[in-house]
C-alpha cells in the first residue's frame, strides 16, 4: 500500500520528525518531574503526539485502518486513560510524594544515556532508514527504555502505571514505524486491554493505599512468602 513517490516525498516532510521529537521529549519530561500529576500531563502529550503521527501516516499513505487506529488512540490514550489516572490520583489520600530511587538529576542523565544507546544500536541493528518512518524507530525504542526506567525508578504505584502506559505508547509507535501498524482488530484489542488494564491498576492502587496507607509500591515486598 506504500507508493514509491511517497517514500521520496516523506523524508522531506519534517512534520513526523517533529512529532517524534515531541513524543520522546514528553517521556523525558515525565522522568524529570517528581509529582505524579505532572507525569500524567506528560503522558497526555505523549499520547497526543502519537495520535498525530499515526494520523499523519494515515494521510500520507492512504491506509484507512491506521486512521481509525489514530482516532482510537486519540480518544483512549489522549482522553480516557489520563482521566482515569487523574481520578485515581484524586482519590489517593497520600499526598506525600515518596522520594524516587534515583534522584531526578541522575534520572535525567541516565535516560539521556539510554536514548543514546537506543539511537546508536537501532542504526546497528536495522541499518539506515529503510522505512518511511525511519526516524520513529529509534525514538520508539528510546521511549520504551525511558518508560521502563520510569517504572523502575519510581516508588509510587501510580507513577509506575504512567511508566507502563508510556512504554505501551512506544511499542505502538514501533509497530507503526516498522509495519505501518498492526491489523485494526489487533490495535482495537490492545487499546481495549490497555483501557481496562489502566482502570484495574487504578483500583489496585486504591487497594494498596487501603492496605498500607500509602501508595508506595516498595511496601509490596512484605507480601513475599
Amino acid at each position: 500500500m506504500t507508493g514509491a513517490p511517497l517514500i521520496d516525498w516523506l523524508p522531506r516532510s519534517n512534520a513526523i520528525n517533529l512529532l517524534a521529537g515531541v513524543f520522546l521529549l514528553s517521556a523525558l519530561y515525565a522522568v524529570t518531574q517528581r509529582r505524579t500529576a505532572a507525569c500524567i500531563t506528560a503522558y497526555t502529550w505523549n499520547s497526543l503526539s502519537l495520535a498525530a503521527i499515526a494520523m499523519l501516516v494515515a494521510l500520507l499513505t492512504g491506509a484507512r485502518h491506521i486512521g481509525v487506529a489514530a482516532a482510537l488512540v486519540l480518544v483512549s490514550k489522549g482522553f480516557l486513560i489520563p482521566r482515569l489516572l487523574r481520578r485515581a490520583l484524586a482519590r489517593s489520600r497520600s499526598r506525600a510524594e515518596a522520594e524516587p530511587y534515583v534522584s531526578i538529576q541522575l534520572s535525567a542523565l541516565l535516560c539521556g544515556a539510554l536514548v543514546v544507546i537506543a539511537f546508536s544500536q537501532t542504526r546497528v541493528l536495522f541499518g539506515e532508514g529503510v522505512s518511511i518512518l525511519a526516524s520513529c524507530l529509534p525514538v520508539s525504542i528510546a521511549t520504551t527504555l525511558v518508560g521502563l526506567f520510569l517504572m523502575v525508578s519510581r516508588k509510587q504505584a501510580l507513577a509506575m502505571v504512567v511508566g507502563l502506559v508510556i512504554l505501551e505508547n512506544a511499542i505502538f509507535l514501533a509497530a507503526v514505524s516498522l509495519t505501518y501498524g498492526m491489523p485494526l482488530v489487533v490495535e482495537m484489542g490492545v487499546l481495549l486491554d490497555l483501557l481496562v488494564g489502566t482502570a484495574l491498576l487504578g483500583m489496585m492502587v486504591g487497594r494498596i493505599e487501603e492496605s498500607f496507607a500509602t501508595d508506595d509500591a516498595t511496601r509490596l515486598t512484605s507480601l513475599r512468602g
Binding site: 537506543a118 544500536q121 525504542i141 523502575v152 516498595t218 515486598t221
Partner: peptide, 24 residues
C-alpha cells in the same frame, strides 16, 4: 528473587539494554 517489584523491573530494563548493546 527479593520480592521487590522495582528490582524485577530493573532486571527487565538491564536485560533489554544488554540485548540492545550485544545483539548484533
Amino acid at each position: 528473587q527479593a520480592g521487590n517489584l522495582h528490582l524485577y523491573l530493573g532486571y527487565l530494563l538491564a536485560t533489554l539494554v544488554a540485548l540492545l548493546v550485544w545483539a548484533r
